[in-house]
Design a binder for these strands. Sequence first.
DNA 1: CTGCATTAGGTTGTGCACAACTTAATCGAG
DNA 2: CTCGATTAAGTTGTGCACAACCTAATGCAG
Lengths: 142, 142
Amino acid sequence: MAVTDEMVCFSLYSAARATTQAYRALLEPWGLTYPQYLVLAILWMEGEQTIGSLGDAMQLDSGTLSPLVRRLEQAGYVVRARSSADERVVTVGLTDTGMALRTEVAPVHTRIAALAGMQDDDQRHRLIAELQQLTARLQHAH
Amino acid sequence: MAVTDEMVCFSLYSAARATTQAYRALLEPWGLTYPQYLVLAILWMEGEQTIGSLGDAMQLDSGTLSPLVRRLEQAGYVVRARSSADERVVTVGLTDTGMALRTEVAPVHTRIAALAGMQDDDQRHRLIAELQQLTARLQHAH
DNA sequence: CTGCATTAGGTTGTGCACAACTTAATCGAG
DNA sequence: CTCGATTAAGTTGTGCACAACCTAATGCAG
């Protein structure tokens, strides 16, 4: 029994890395990373976003999102544009190529959940709720 | 209700980042990161290790551990030495300074668990077991 | 209308995480 | 004993995560 097996933090750290590994394998044909997939998933479901709204959804700051979205743009999946109403705001929208990925790529998260043994809705929602509560507590702690 | 709130992967990703954030705050006085803390925790509990045994425990390869352990050495917490029995192997041991940290720093993971609302042993072990099972399933999937 | 505070996004620097590769030591079949 | 295979660790390059800082646009008190 290793030291780390007694730590919640380590099992989280480990599970998160196993998850992004699983995404890496399934997303490899499109050269997408897991955070890039998340941005596309948000765009597919909710339409055009700003860097700020992506940051709210993913809890990431512009220091992470700016280069990430730039790479998605270089790959031809999204376009960035300064908002005409407010020149500070950058909008991010899907290209036709990005839109076309949806059918094939969007279901990946469901396949990952199945691989993880999380195909049962109740069980999955219970785990999600528990993790969200844990996250909220840690965030409010400081 | 955001898109990402339906995804196990996102709640994991989010919880893992909240955890390392909490560690960052508590470890700031010693300039330690969460993975560095893990290495020290293993050394405190199990004594001298090799790069390979640390890699087994943390599921990391030498590409991550080599520079990480180098930084711990530069900070004066550990020493590296080539094994005389097998010159390929590098052993990692605590310095007196590293040993002395134990009293103050080792309890941090318990404090994090408390902040996360995971002070109850049964509840914590149930979550750890669930995450370990999920991790194992994802790792065996490929 | 002016000028300072606020806000949105970008840049820089550090440290993981990991793939792909290199180097050097050890092992082991023949 | 020899030499090809294996093993341990390190190096290089890419992408995230995040702190600290910068720039430019907007908002707003006076």
